[in-house]
Computed example of a mutant assay.
Amino acid sequence: MDTSRDPIIELREVSLTLQGSAGPVNILRGVDLAVGRGESVGIMGASGAGKTSLLMVLSGLERATSGSVRVAGRDVGAMDEDALARFRGATLGIVFQGFHLVPAMTALENVALPLELAGVREAFAKARESLLAVGLSHRLDHFPAQLSGGEQQRVALARAFASAPDLILADEPTGNLDMATGAKVMDLLFNLCAERGATLVLVTHDRSLAGRCGRRMTMRDGLLAENGEAFA
């Protein structure tokens, strides 16, 4: 795919420096990335390479120290916190390794909550539809503790897709699941992205999962390269 035609992600010379106990730590070091709409990109790399930090910068949950971050045509670095929250609610779906569900809320309430916070009309109806799409219509009123790990991650998927986002960011989404359950969750994730035309950026340690993506990249010491390219 020619990512220059209609990029949903454009990163140029993006750096991220955080303050550690021993001084500044360079997490991202001049990352360039263009991703076209509808693409799937798998990013691999060792722990500490900067993969999760890259997703944090893309979502605006972490602000880049320098460089340009544009997502869905918006300058992420120029938005204040309120604008970022609205932007995430309308544009992004995020799936974490930890399920990040509210223990005191049912599956339906967990999916509806971000829709309500974003001011979406008929939030519970949309949440119900999203849970139906991941095969959990029979678990609407169950709390996270009453659900298996695979079911909790499917609730997280339903939450991520409920707002019909253009972009899904997935950070080790099978990390807390056994192999068989993880495979089912990933089938669901790829199918939902394909059905809805959503762009997927997937961070994973699993080479076979990365191999299911249209593009494969590797992150090392804060640098990002297409597979087959040499690091500087």
Rank of each mutant, 00 (worst) to 15 (best):
M1D: 11
M1K: 15
P7Y: 00
I9A: 02
V14E: 00
L16I: 00
L18N: 04
Q19W: 00
G20E: 01
A22D: 15
P24Q: 01
P24D: 08
P24S: 02
V25Q: 11
I27T: 13
I27F: 05
V31Y: 05
V35R: 02
V35A: 03
R37Q: 14
V41T: 04
M44Y: 04
K51Q: 12
K51E: 13
L54C: 10
M56R: 11
L61Y: 13
R63C: 01
A64P: 13
A64W: 02
T65H: 14
S66L: 00
D75T: 13
V76C: 10
G77V: 06
L84F: 08
A90D: 15
G93M: 08
F99K: 04
A104S: 12
A104T: 15
A107M: 07
L108R: 15
K126D: 02
S130L: 06
A133H: 05
A133E: 10
A133C: 05
A133F: 09
V134I: 03
S137K: 07
L140E: 02
P144E: 14
P144G: 05
S148D: 01
R159M: 03
P165C: 03
L169M: 09
A170F: 10
A170H: 13
P173E: 01
P173C: 08
P173R: 04
G175H: 00
N176T: 04
L177M: 04
D178A: 07
G182E: 09
D187W: 05
L192T: 03
C193S: 13
A194L: 10
T199L: 11
S208A: 12
A210M: 10
A210V: 03
A210Y: 08
A210C: 08
G211S: 12
G211T: 06
C213P: 03
C213W: 01
C213S: 10
R215Y: 10
T218A: 08
L223N: 09
L224F: 06
A225M: 10
F231L: 15
A232I: 08
A232C: 09
